[in-house]
Design a protein around this nucleic acid. Structure first.
Lengths: 244, 244
DNA sequence: GCTCAAAAAATTGTCGACAATCCTCTCGAC
DNA sequence: GTCGAGAGGATTGTCGACAATTTTTTGAGC
């Protein structure tokens, strides 16, 4: 089962400079990044002593990291049997997308109520950039703008709780962002949906903003659902982006 | 006479008496319960060694517990300065209620799609019980039925992600459930709202179920908002329940 | 060759000890 | 009397060692 691990370069300890003081936090960030960015595969075992030597910290520190990551939903931990990178199924990815959508709709509502003029201007400007990217056919730039717009809406909502939950859900989804499909022609509709959202926020129309975001995100979820069922029949569609 | 102690084998193993092995999990549950149920006050310092002796476990175990509780949002932890019970402000309580509402609306939608006949029957029955309690003026029983109904809707949704997030939010709110106000006359409207939710789920009308739950929860949030602003002017209203 | 049991290895769970850091209180200077 | 420096105590951060448990390997019997 366990293939011999590739020549994973055991990176030398980083935090050992003058003090080695921030080693624990640094190590936590690195381990989390390794999981989120997919450098550690799902279901891969996380042996405490191995991580300890790889990250240059003691086993106790690794243990607290794993406890945190478990509560974040990034690893699973069975008593006396160790921790493994959590496997997120496609069904779960759909669930996460739905939950995130419900919370982002709340964020859009609050953004309509609490957004500052500067934040609204940033949204409008981002929307313009997205339009340019779309016309140029640069989907990567479009996706970046899309991410910036959503982040700004969450920031403008002033809703710490929603922001915290969304951030947690996003971390579990990163692996899938690059596996979901952008169905042809979705971009144009996606852009129209975003425009409606920003329009509603600008008019401080909370109900309209929430509804527009919900409408948008229901389409995202539909797209994801169609993608998974399509993949079930017909494997290996070209991976692409789904635009939130 | 044996002066020498009997050759009792070394008892240096973990735990006291028979239940030693579950000590850690048991201790975690107890500490969590002490925080959630309010036996530990907000902002109270949580000194590791004190907790260790109080719970009968080592300091390392306490440390991992605190890490988990921090990630759960029940404890705040400043580096080198220890952990304290997290203080949830009333503004934060409102945020949590809003986020929970957004997720419960999603749950209601999914319950309309995936609920089994047995679950629907349970909901209808619970609704009947709530009606009886309401007529009898037994608000405590009404609140219990209310909690059972919401729990069943979440169960029927088959939505693990929403269930997990809602459970986390609920834990942070327990202290406030007994501090929020039931404004006079709210019960009757609350019951009508619940009836509409169950009706929609029974008809497998996902949109209607989501909308009904959203409508219901917006009223709950409004009630909570009015309560906090009313308390700001005029202290010491009689604490009571707010019915979800 | 296969199955099952016991030994061996690997890994996790727990504890106490020590170092690093923060907090408090005293004491002296002005 | 107030302020600041420093000693002393309290608390957290980290590590290594050992016990408990799980997993793998070994070996006997059929």
């Amino acid at each position: 089962m366990d293939v011999v691990p590739p020549p994973q370069p055991v990176r030398a300890t980083v935090g050992r400079d003058g003090r080695g003081r921030m080693a624990a936090d640094e190590a936590y960030a690195r381990l989390r990044d390794d999981i989120v960015k997919g450098r550690l595969m799902p279901n891969e075992r996380l042996v405490e002593v191995d991580l300890a030597v790889a990250l240059g910290v003691g086993r106790t520190a690794v243990r607290t990291m794993l406890a945190r990551l478990e509560q974040e939903g990034l690893v699973v931990h069975e008593p006396n049997r160790g921790a493994r990178v959590r496997m997120v199924t496609e069904a779960e990815a759909l669930e996460i997308t739905q939950a995130r959508g419900a919370l982002e709709a709340l964020a859009a509502r609050e953004a309509a109520l609490h957004g500052t003029p500067a934040e609204l201007a940033f949204m409008r400007e981002t929307l313009t950039q997205m339009s340019v990217s779309l016309k140029a056919g640069d989907l990567l730039a479009y996706s970046d703008g899309n991410a910036r717009l959503h982040a700004k809406i969450i920031e403008a909502s002033r809703h710490q709780t929603a922001a915290r939950l969304i951030a947690g859900l996003k971390a579990q989804m990163v692996r899938f962002q690059y596996r979901t499909v952008l169905v042809p022609g979705r971009s144009a509709r996606s852009f129209a949906e975003h425009t409606r959202i920003v329009d509603a926020i600008e008019m401080a129309n909370a109900d309209a903003a929430e509804a527009a975001m919900r409408y948008h995100l229901s389409h995202v979820a539909d797209t994801l659902r169609e993608m998974t069922s399509a993949r079930a029949q017909h494997r290996a569609l070209s991976p692409d982006f789904v635009h939130f």
